[in-house]
């Protein structure tokens, strides 16, 4: 049985039940924000939220996901509005970006349970590997996202996707609205 929920939608994967969740997400659901980096749980680039836990999706089979709720980076928010996403842009965390989905998912799960984690708690919760060296910014961004979650700060650093041309023209004088709008 391989029926469960991905980003609030019910799915059934007609795949080998032993298939790691990572590959069902990537190759069957085309949710490519979750990345393959090692397949052995070392890098954390494939981290997703399963029932509120940060799990390496390369280490869990789709059979083991039966009946559970899976959230991927695509389902974290519809419009990059999650405090972790906003803090990640405000602190300019990503470089190549490849490991960042996993980092963000791990941070989001950590902060849901504890909006003011200590450095030691952050270190324990985020065991993902980043080769570009975004670590110092990750610490800062997790703390900042915590402040947003605690209502101490608001951030509007990352714009939502899909801005309409008319709205862009209203906000930016150099832009022209398309004809007929």
């Amino acid at each position: 049985m391989t029926k469960f929920s991905v980003n609030d939608r019910p799915v059934e994967y007609r795949m080998d039940p032993e298939t790691p969740l990572l590959w069902a997400l990537r190759d069957a659901s085309n949710l490519t924000g979750t990345k393959y980096g090692c397949g052995t749980g070392d890098c954390g680039a494939c981290t997703v939220d399963i029932d509120g836990e940060a799990i390496r999706s390369c280490l869990v089979t789709i059979a083991e996901c039966e009946g559970r709720l899976v959230t991927t980076i695509e389902g974290l928010s519809r419009d990059r509005s999650h405090p972790v996403q906003q803090a990640w842009v405000a602190e300019q965390v990503p470089q190549c970006g490849f490991c960042q989905s996993g980092m963000i998912m791990a941070a989001a799960v950590l902060l849901r349970g504890n909006s003011s984690p200590s450095d030691a708690e952050i270190d324990a919760a985020i065991t993902n590997i980043c080769r570009c060296g975004t670590y110092p910014r990750i610490r800062a961004a997790v703390r900042r996202a915590g402040r947003v979650l605690r209502g101490e700060e608001r951030i509007a650093a990352a714009p939502p996707p899909g801005i309409r041309p008319e709205d862009a023209a209203r906000a930016v004088p150099a832009m022209r609205a398309p004809p007929g709008s």
């Binding site: 490519t32 695509e74 990059r80 990640w88 300019q92 960042q100 990352a158 996707p161």
Partner: peptide, 14 residues
């Protein structure tokens, strides 16, 4: 702000 960041925090960077 880097132009590539929004796509790198929502999984849409390809």
């Amino acid at each position: 702000t880097r132009l590539d960041l929004p796509a790198k925090v929502d999984g849409s960077a390809n």
